Simulated assay, not measured.
Amino acid sequence: MTDKGKEGEKTSMNKRADLHTHTRASDGTCEPHENVRLAAEAGLAAVAITDHDTVAGIPAALEAAGQLGQAVEVIPGVEVSSLARGQDIHVLGYFIPYEDQAFLQRLSGLRDTRHERNKLMIARLQELGIPITLEGVYRRKSGEDKNIGRPHIAEEMIELGVVQSIDEAFAVYLGKEGKAYVNPPRITPQEAITLIKEAGGVAVLAHPGLYDDDELVQELIAFGLDGIEVWHPDNSQEQREQYQRWAEAHGLVMTGGSDFHGWRGEEPFHAMLGTHTAPYDAVERLREIAGKRKRQGE
């Protein structure tokens, strides 16, 4: 592991947590138990399961942690999709009520919007002369709840020979500057923050460095974010230092995570689980906030 990958000067006495990972429940390639195993192998104290708009991977991850004798703590989480100023804004929710039916229903509505977006994006690709179909993309996942995202579309494009890599698919077609980028109406990030907090969870802004919009980040901090993802593979060193200053100024929890999505070919996507982390005291702060919120709601 390179020094660049070791976020936050890890020592033998310093427990770490990867607070941003995905599984096959959304657009990752690993089963939940594999994320837990990888976290244990990396020597982590905790790993969060934060799939896009779904909590379906959490029970299996908790079961896997139990089988390992709780060597790794599993933090139940979710990454909520929202839209602001024409681009995706993602808000991470931690210690969310993953068995609450009302919360699950809200997430189901978000996945319906994701499905509509997939249809629009594939239609745009077809207009560009690319022989891609909705059926071809959706065959990549089994089961009734097909939580499909842009990486699945990118995989299909690779198989069709349109692009050579996930990165190329996003750069040319699927990213926010891409030829086929579309975004139907979604909830705002403020609504995502409210959804998470009203459910008793803790709201953290995911990978703020991706948005290239510091004004929006500051607006969301003022609105009521609980934390900000400082250590992420897409945040530059300068951005990390800036987010640390903002977090300290506003009393926010500083989190970090690899945004691990499994492997696309031979390379981990975005980064290998455990290479971007936060100190374990971030977990303790998240748990404390969630506990207070739960008690206030009782």
Score class of each variant (00 low, 15 high):
residue 1 M to R: 13
residue 4 K to R: 14
residue 4 K to C: 07
residue 8 G to R: 01
residue 11 T to C: 04
residue 12 S to A: 14
residue 12 S to D: 14
residue 15 K to P: 15
residue 16 R to T: 05
residue 20 H to I: 12
residue 20 H to E: 10
residue 23 T to G: 09
residue 24 R to S: 07
residue 26 S to D: 07
residue 27 D to Y: 01
residue 27 D to H: 08
residue 28 G to V: 04
residue 28 G to H: 03
residue 35 N to Q: 12
residue 36 V to K: 00
residue 39 A to V: 07
residue 40 A to V: 09
residue 43 G to A: 12
residue 51 D to K: 03
residue 52 H to G: 02
residue 52 H to D: 00
residue 56 A to V: 10
residue 61 A to V: 11
residue 61 A to Y: 08
residue 62 L to I: 15
residue 67 Q to A: 13
residue 69 G to R: 00
residue 84 A to S: 13
residue 90 H to M: 08
residue 93 G to Q: 04
residue 95 F to V: 00
residue 99 E to V: 12
residue 101 Q to V: 14
residue 106 R to K: 15
residue 117 R to I: 01
residue 117 R to F: 02
residue 120 L to Q: 08
residue 122 I to K: 02
residue 125 L to M: 06
residue 130 I to Y: 12
residue 130 I to R: 10
residue 131 P to F: 12
residue 136 G to L: 07
residue 137 V to P: 00
residue 138 Y to F: 03
residue 143 G to S: 14
residue 151 P to E: 00
residue 154 A to E: 04
residue 155 E to G: 08
residue 164 Q to W: 10
residue 169 A to Y: 00
residue 175 G to C: 00
residue 176 K to Y: 12
residue 181 Y to G: 05
residue 183 N to D: 12
residue 185 P to K: 14
residue 188 T to W: 02
residue 190 Q to A: 03
residue 197 K to N: 08
residue 203 A to S: 01
residue 207 H to A: 08
residue 210 L to R: 15
residue 210 L to Y: 07
residue 213 D to W: 08
residue 216 L to G: 09
residue 225 L to A: 06
residue 232 H to F: 04
residue 242 Q to N: 11
residue 244 Q to E: 14
residue 245 R to E: 07
residue 247 A to Q: 06
residue 250 H to L: 09
residue 252 L to M: 05
residue 257 G to A: 10
residue 261 H to R: 12
residue 262 G to D: 01
residue 265 G to I: 12
residue 266 E to P: 09
residue 269 F to A: 09
residue 272 M to V: 09
residue 272 M to S: 11
residue 276 H to P: 04
residue 277 T to M: 13
residue 283 V to P: 03
residue 285 R to N: 00
residue 286 L to D: 00
residue 286 L to R: 01
residue 290 A to C: 03
residue 297 G to I: 13
residue 298 E to I: 08
